[in-house]
Amino acid sequence: MLAIKEEKGLLWIRASGKLEDEDYNRFVPQFEEIAEREPGTVAMVIELAPDFSGWDLGGFWRDLKFDVRHKDSFGRIAIVGDNQWEEWGTEVFDPLFRAEMEFFHPTERQAAEVWARSDESMS
């Protein structure tokens, strides 16, 4: 499940459980609306809840296609989580995207927001 909110151009996403089609179908229009309205790129903080279990392979490919289609709309992406595989995944996927990605532990939530908002390298 995805909980999505916007706060002054920063997109906050909390992912929990297993992501499903409905989550993706809600996220895409929200992201596109913000990307059209806000100048530049959309910065994000993605919080992975302790019960986050990812998505199925079909969801992974759909997300990858979305990322390619919107590659110029992404600002910095801060990933907040507490599992080693989440940190590893952030490091693996970072080189695949134009946007910078950085992993933060839950105790660093405020630092994640500051980092995502300081999108100087993408300007």
Rank of each mutant, 00 (worst) to 15 (best):
L10W: 10
F52W: 15
V68F: 10
A78N: 09
G75P: 00
P95E: 08
A99C: 10
E7Y: 01
A15N: 04
R26V: 07
K65H: 08
P106R: 14
K18L: 13
W85V: 08
F97T: 05
R26T: 11
P39H: 06
E36L: 10
S123R: 14
S121H: 11
S121A: 13
E120M: 10
R37K: 10
T90E: 07
M101A: 13
W115I: 02
T41L: 01
E7C: 02
D23K: 01
L19Q: 09
D56T: 10
S73I: 00
M122V: 13
W55K: 04
F27H: 05
L48Q: 11
D72N: 09
F52E: 08
S123L: 14
F60K: 14
F60D: 07
R76A: 11
I46D: 00
L96F: 14
G89N: 12
A35S: 07
L10Q: 10
E20S: 07
A49M: 05
E20Y: 11
E22T: 13
V92C: 06
S16H: 11
G59F: 07
E87Q: 12
D119T: 10
A49L: 13
W115G: 03
T41S: 10
F97A: 00
E86M: 15
F74R: 10
E47K: 05
V80W: 01
R98M: 04
W115D: 00
L96T: 12
V28I: 15
V68W: 03
M101G: 10
E86F: 02
D82K: 14
A15V: 05
E32K: 09
E86R: 13
V68H: 05
A111R: 15
K5L: 02
A3D: 15
S121P: 03
T107I: 09
V68P: 00
S16F: 00
M101R: 12
E38A: 02
